[in-house]
Amino acid sequence: MSLHDKLNEDMKQAMKSKEKDRLSVIRMLKAAIQNEAIKLGKKQLTEDEELTVLSREVKQRKDSLHEFEKAGRDDLVAKIQSELVFVQEYMPTQLSEEEVEAIVSAVIAETNASSKADMGKVMGVLMPKVKGKADGSLVSKLVQKHLS
């Protein structure tokens, strides 16, 4: 089942069970995917493009969550946390730090990287392998650790 179909099914279910918060997030995700399709001039996005949109939405919420926590806006923190839970339901299963570290080690060996100057080369090969399955900041931190 494609993400578009899953969102439609979940939207119907959320309407029937009167889950306003979930319905709001699903509509927002559908709009984000539709906007990306329009921007790219396509009728339907590929799975990879849909994953990019979902990753962007998760990152936006995490950034907002951090800012709201810093500002002491507990009302908005709770709202963003619940949205984040709903959005993450559509993301692939996240890799553990150990799994990411193993992939980082393999890519560093594969690219013969030895210093921080090779970080761009490593990240270029690594990110497509972990796209949507690992947080970019974690990946970057692990690459820097291995290359230092």
Results as ranks from 00 to 15, higher is better:
Asp21Tyr: 06
Val104Asp: 05
Met1Thr: 06
Arg61Gly: 01
Ser17Phe: 11
Leu51Tyr: 11
Ile103Cys: 04
Asp21Ala: 06
Glu36Val: 02
Met15Gly: 01
Lys12Cys: 04
Leu51Ile: 07
Asp74Thr: 14
Lys42Glu: 12
Ser17Gly: 03
Glu67Ser: 10
Glu110Gln: 15
Leu51Gln: 07
Lys121Phe: 05
Lys18Leu: 08
Val77His: 06
Gln34Tyr: 14
Asp48Gly: 04
Ser24Tyr: 10
Asn8Gln: 13
Arg27Gln: 13
Lys20Asp: 06
Gly132Cys: 09
Gly132Asn: 11
Asp118Gln: 07
Gly136Ser: 08
Val104Asn: 03
Pro92Asp: 09
Val25Gln: 03
Leu126Gly: 01
Gly72Lys: 07
Ile33Met: 07
Val130Pro: 00
Thr52Gln: 13
Leu7Ser: 04
Thr52Gly: 07
Leu65Ala: 09
Gln81His: 09
Ile103Leu: 11
Asp135Cys: 06
Ala14Tyr: 01
Val125Ala: 04
Asp135Ser: 05
Leu45Ser: 07
Ala117Ser: 15
Ala113Ile: 02
Pro92Trp: 12
Leu76Gln: 08
Met123His: 05
Lys62Gln: 14
Glu57His: 06
Gln44Ala: 13
Leu29Gln: 05
Ser17Cys: 04
His146Phe: 12
Lys129Leu: 14
Asp75Lys: 13
Thr111Glu: 15
Asn112Thr: 06
Asp5Asn: 13
Ser140Cys: 04
Asp74Pro: 01
Ser55Pro: 06
Lys145Gln: 12
Ser82Gly: 03
